[in-house]
Amino acid sequence: MKASVKYSLQMVIALVVLGLLLMLSVRYGSNSNTGSTVFNSLFHFDASSIDQRIIRHIRIPRIIGAMLIGAALAVSGALMQSVTKNPMADSGLLGINAGAAFMLTLCFTFFPKMSTLNTTAFSVVGAAISAGLVFAISSLKKSQMSPTILVLSGLAISAFFTAISEGIALIANLKQDLAFWHFGGISAVSWAQLERLGPWIIVGLVVVYLMSGNLNLLSLTDDSIKSLGKNITAIRLISLICVVILSGVSVSLVGNVAFVGLIIPHIAKFLVGTNNRKVIPMTILLGADLTVLADLIARTINPPQETPFGIIISIVGVPFFIYLARRDGNQL
């Protein structure tokens, strides 16, 4: 089969899967609905029906949220792996998760009455601050930003913020409140949050898609990239800013979701090869597929209790990842 035909087919399949998952997600959850209730809640909304209100005000925003976040985290992982030339990298390495958790801890401790909308905004700021610190430290050396120093300073800043927030949480007795955030939960995503934060994710994804050709260059050495006439620092900086926006927003919305950023880009590469013009769109779709699926399982596995979907992602994703790694180890 011709490569372009194969790629189109794969994209169509990933899209169809996403469509099916979205439909299932709207119908099933802690309570299940008939197709007509779903249809009416979308097109003939009746505010007096509880089922329709649940679908329209709770379920649809969280599903859209899951989709956007999955795409954002997966693309962030792909960017980090390209920028650091490290197949094990994800956005956590920029200290984003730790910075967001730190701000959230501060909010819970000092402003316990703050609305979710505002705590989310603050944790985006926290993510940006810690990522900014990581950039600053790794650019201190006069030569260019080296991937190794970036990873090391990311680890250091992460450890620092994690230590402080755990200390504060311990003193203020917040362990319980933060636990759900640490496992990753998507239940609280509302229309208001989506309106405020969704556009950032969409803009970020579009920017990454437009620069996906340039990402291919990052697999060369800095000298080679420069002698091809490209500005390596600009490519790196734009990539990292996109990572901060995409994963900062996601982590603030749903908490510490591991593995999406790590495994999805590898699965995408396994399917479509190493060209980022193909890898990035596939990563976006597969990321959305995985989180929507995980969210669906999280809601239906033990109703009406909700299982943190970060746990589901690890349980679904890791065995598949190990299978891929063993089957085709040299692709990683």
Binding site: K85, S219, T221, D223, S224, S227, N330, Q331
Partner: peptide, 9 residues
């Protein structure tokens, strides 16, 4: 350059 590596295969 002297060392020309590629990260992706």
């Amino acid at each position: 350059p002297q060392s020309n590596e590629v990260a992706n295969d």
